[in-house]
């Protein structure tokens, strides 16, 4: 660890009951880096993202995210610099897309106008009154991307980054990821389609361990 990494994992492992999800995972993610995370279904990609997002504590190993050591109270201070777009939408189904994004803006201390602007940028300005549970998967993903625009994170984690998105929205993912990287942040994208990943390098989860992809 050189002190400048945005994400640093050293021999991180996770065991849930008798199941080993991760073993001795090593990862370093520096400023301006965009890294792909590959692996088959159930290989632990989402779990690894949740560990990097400081939402889940590893059972072995050590690491730091945005300078905060994983497993310590320091992570509470840096969480608001992380945006994770999971494969399940972080939206309340009964609220409209506009209300959901506005809630994110309000809870992060920003004005509702920022939310409306972000929604427009992801092409949902005319759908802001539509309830989340009446929106398509692609619209939900776009609303999630709007969250990244509102919060301007230093670390952006995108699970199944391109799933359910049309060509325009896939371009949007790249634009938002590039914006984070250009600002000195880092991005990690999970995808089942390596060809679509426009990243600096990729790592793969195989049997719970992380391997470089050549």
């Amino acid at each position: 660890m050189n002190g400048h990494e945005i994400v640093y994992l050293d021999d991180v492992g996770l065991r849930l009951g008798n199941t080993i999800i991760l073993r001795e995972a090593k990862l370093s993610l520096g400023p301006g880096e965009k890294v792909g995370l590959l692996g088959p279904n159930g290989s632990g990609k989402t779990t690894l993202l949740r560990i990097i997002a400081t939402l889940l504590q590893p059972t072995s190993g050590s690491g730091a995210v945005l300078g905060a050591e994983i497993g310590t109270q320091d992570v509470y201070e840096i969480r608001n610099r992380i945006v994770m777009v999971g494969h399940l939408p972080g939206l309340w189904p009964e609220l409209t897309l506009g209300e959901n994004t506005e809630l994110v803006a309000r809870l992060s201390g920003r004005s509702p106008e920022v939310a409306a602007d972000a929604l427009a940028q992801v092409g949902l300005a005319r759908a802001s009154e539509r309830r989340a549970d009446q929106s398509s998967k692609g619209m939900l993903r776009r609303a999630e991307l709007a969250r990244a625009l509102i919060l301007e994170p230093t670390l952006l984690l995108l699970d199944e980054a391109h799933a359910g998105l049309d060509a325009e929205a896939i371009g949007m993912v790249d634009t938002i990821a590039n914006r984070v990287v250009a600002g000195g942040g880092a991005v990690m994208l999970v995808s089942h389609e390596p060809d679509r990943l426009n990243v600096h390098r990729s790592v793969q989860l195989v049997d719970g361990t992380l391997e470089m992809v050549s």
Binding site: A53, L55, R79, N80, G86, G90, V104
Partner: peptide, 16 residues
């Protein structure tokens, strides 16, 4: 029933 894991993760990451 209101908050699933994705919503709870969101609230945690927002630093609430």
């Amino acid at each position: 029933a209101v908050d699933g894991q994705a919503q709870r993760d969101l609230v945690r990451l927002l630093g609430i």
